[in-house]
Design a protein around this nucleic acid. Structure first.
Lengths: 338, 338
DNA sequence: TTGTATGCGTTATCAA
DNA sequence: TTGATAACGCATACAA
C-alpha cells in the first residue's frame, strides 16, 4: 500500500527523466515538445495516474477555467433549459460551471456574485439588468468579465438576450387586433425582475398605441406557479365587465389560467382568450394549446457562453447579441366574442 | 489610477501593521486573534477591498470549498428542483456548486467526473447507481467523497434516495387492485438509467405478485417529453385488447398520454386510467389530475448536501438516507371499466 | 496572542 | 527543444 498522496508534476518528471517544465509543457502546449519525449512523458502521466492539481495551477496561471452563473433559480424551466445549453457549451471547451441562485433577491445576488468571484470564476453570467449600482460597482472594480442574459438593457454592458418589452407589445397588439377591448394581465412578479416588468410595459405600450389608457389595464402579479396563475385568473374573472382576453407574463401562469377557466366553466378561447410567454414544452400541450411568444432559450445559453469565453480570452466580443422572438399562435387565442 | 492587481495578504498585513499570519487567522479563525488587532485588520481588509485568492488558498489548504454534481441534465423538472435545494444548502455554509451533465451517457459522466475532480471538488454528487466499474474505480482511487442520489443501491456506497422499485410496485399493485387486467406501461428510457429500470421492475413485480405473467406487460420506452409520451400512448391503444390502464414511468410521459387520450376521444379514467411518477407541479394541474408517486425532491437535495458535507468534514455519515414515497391518488386512475 | 518561516504544485521566464 | 529557478498567495507548524 502506497501513501495516499496524489502524484505531482515532480513525480512524473522524475519517472520520465525530464524536468517539471517539460511535463507542464506536454500538458499545456504539446507542440512545444518533441514527439519522443512527449510520448515518454505521457506514458509516465498515465502510469502514475497523474492529474494536475487545481490549486497549484490556479495559483500559478491566475486562471481557473471556471465560469460562474447567478440565476434566480434552477427550478424554472426557462433557466433550466438555458443553463443546460450554457453548461454544455462551456464543457465542450473544458470550462466548468459554478452555479449559484439569488431567489430573485438583490442582496443574495450580490452575495453570490462575491462568492463566485472569490471562488476564482474567470467570468460571470447574470440574468437581466435590474440590480443595485453597488453590485455593478463591485463587478467593475473587480474587473471580472460578465454577461447579462435573458434581456437587453440600455447600459454599455454585454447583453445576450431579447427584447421582452417589444415581444410583449407585439403579442398584445395582436390581441387588440382581434377585437379584444376588455383585456387583463397576469404578470410575473416585477419587483427585482426586469424581464417581468418589461413584459408589463410592452402590454401597456400596445394599449397606448391603440389609443387606450394603459392605466386601465387590470394587472395581478403572481409567482411562477400554476396555482398562482389559476387564482389570479379567478380574481380577474370577477371583474365587470369580464375580460375577454388575459395576457399572462409566462406560460406557467397561462396554463394555470386555462385550468381555472375550465373549472369555472368558461370556454377558452370562445369565452376568454389566454396567452403565455416563453413557449416552453407545455405550451403546445395544454388544451387548448397556448398562444405564446417563442424564446430561443437554448440558443441564448450557447451564445452567452461563447460571448463570455471570448471576453475572457481577451477577444473583442460583440457588445450585445439580440435574439428575435416570434408569436406562436395556437388555440388559446381567438377573436373577441361579439 | 492604481495598478489593477488585487491586494494580497501581504498588502493587508502591511496596512494593518501585523504579519500575514495574523491576517490569515482573522479570516479563518477570528477567535484566535485578540479583538483590537482583529478590528484593525478587518478595517484594512475593507479599505483595500481584499478578498483571498482562491488558488493560493486551495493550494495551501488542500480544500476548495467546492462540491461538484454530475446530473443527467438540468433540463428536467426533477433534477432542477433537487439541485436547487442542493445548491441552497451548500451555499448556506459557504460551499459553492460545480455542475456538469452527462446526458444519460456513461462515458460523458466519467469524463465530467474527472473534470470536476480535477477542478478540485471536495466531494461529488452523482445520480443513481448504474455506471461502469471503471468509474467507481476512479472515484475510489481518487479517494474523493461521493454520494449517490435519487435511488438506492446494493453497494456499500452512500445513498440518499428512495426505492424506485418498491414505489412503482406499490402503485402497480393499486392499479391491479382496481380491477385492471390489461395494463401497459410507458417507461422512461432504461438504458443507463437505473431509476427508470427500477420502476419497470417494480411494475413487473406487482404483476408477478398478482399471479400474472410479467412478460406479458406491453412496454414502450420513451424519452422524457410530452410528445414521446403521447406517441407511445397512441401506439399502446392500438393493441387488442386495448389496455385499460397505462402506467407511466414519470409525470411528463403521463401528461403526454392523457393529452393523447383526449385527442383520441378516450375518456380518462372512464375508458383508460393513466398514472405518473414524481408528482411534479403539473401532475395536480392536468385534467384529470394525475395519480402519481410523490417524491420529496427538495428534501433529497438538502439531505444529499448535508451528507456530503459531513463526509468531507470527516464525520461519519449514515451509509444511506432513505426517503419514503407515497401514492397520490387523483382523478386519472379509477376502477377498470366493466 | 502574534510573528517567522516554510511548503503547497504549477506556470513562466530565462538560459543553455 | 529542454532545464533551472523564481514567483504565485496563502495556511500553518513552530517559535517567541
Amino acid at each position: 500500500m502506497n501513501q495516499h498522496t496524489r502524484p505531482t508534476l515532480d513525480d512524473v518528471a522524475r519517472a520520465a527523466g525530464v524536468s517539471t517544465a517539460t511535463v507542464s509543457r506536454c500538458l499545456n502546449a504539446p507542440d512545444r515538445v518533441i514527439a519522443p519525449t512527449r510520448e515518454r512523458v505521457m506514458q509516465a502521466v498515465n502510469a502514475l495516474g497523474y492529474t494536475p492539481d487545481f490549486g497549484g495551477r490556479a495559483l500559478a496561471s491566475g486562471r481557473t477555467n471556471t465560469i460562474g452563473a447567478v440565476i434566480p433559480t434552477m427550478d424554472n424551466a426557462i433557466f433550466a433549459r438555458g443553463m443546460q445549453a450554457f453548461q454544455e457549451t462551456l464543457s465542450s471547451v473544458g470550462v466548468t460551471l459554478l452555479v449559484a441562485s439569488s431567489g430573485y433577491d438583490f442582496d443574495r445576488e450580490a452575495e453570490q456574485i462575491r462568492a463566485l468571484a472569490g471562488r476564482g470564476a474567470d467570468g460571470l453570467l447574470l440574468i437581466g439588468s435590474a440590480r443595485p449600482a453597488t453590485t455593478y460597482d463591485f463587478l467593475r472594480r473587480r474587473g471580472i468579465p460578465y454577461v447579462l442574459a435573458w434581456s437587453l438593457g440600455d447600459s454599455a454592458d454585454h447583453f445576450v438576450g431579447f427584447d421582452n418589452r417589444r415581444a410583449a407589445e407585439a403579442l398584445a397588439t395582436r390581441v387588440i387586433a382581434l377585437g379584444h377591448r376588455d383585456i387583463a394581465m397576469i404578470a410575473g412578479v416585477t419587483a427585482m425582475n426586469d424581464r417581468a416588468a418589461d413584459r408589463v410595459e410592452g402590454v401597456r405600450a400596445a394599449l397606448r398605441q391603440a389609443g387606450r389608457d394603459p392605466a386601465s389595464l387590470p394587472i395581478i402579479e403572481a409567482p411562477y406557479s400554476f396555482e398562482d396563475g389559476s387564482n389570479a385568473f379567478a380574481a380577474l374573472m370577477q371583474r365587470v365587465p369580464r375580460p375577454t382576453a388575459v395576457i399572462c407574463g409566462n406560460d406557467i401562469l397561462a396554463v394555470g389560467a386555462i385550468g381555472r377557466a375550465k373549472a369555472l366553466g368558461l370556454r377558452v378561447p370562445d369565452d376568454v382568450s389566454v396567452t403565455g410567454f416563453d413557449n416552453i414544452d407545455i405550451a403546445a400541450f395544454v388544451e387548448p394549446a397556448l398562444t405564446t411568444v417563442h424564446v430561443p432559450h437554448r440558443r441564448m445559453g450557447v451564445a452567452a457562453a461563447q460571448q463570455l469565453l471570448q471576453m475572457i480570452a481577451g477577444d473583442t466580443a460583440d457588445a450585445r447579441v439580440e435574439f428575435g422572438t416570434e408569436i406562436v399562435e395556437r388555440g388559446s387565442l381567438a377573436a373577441a366574442p361579439v
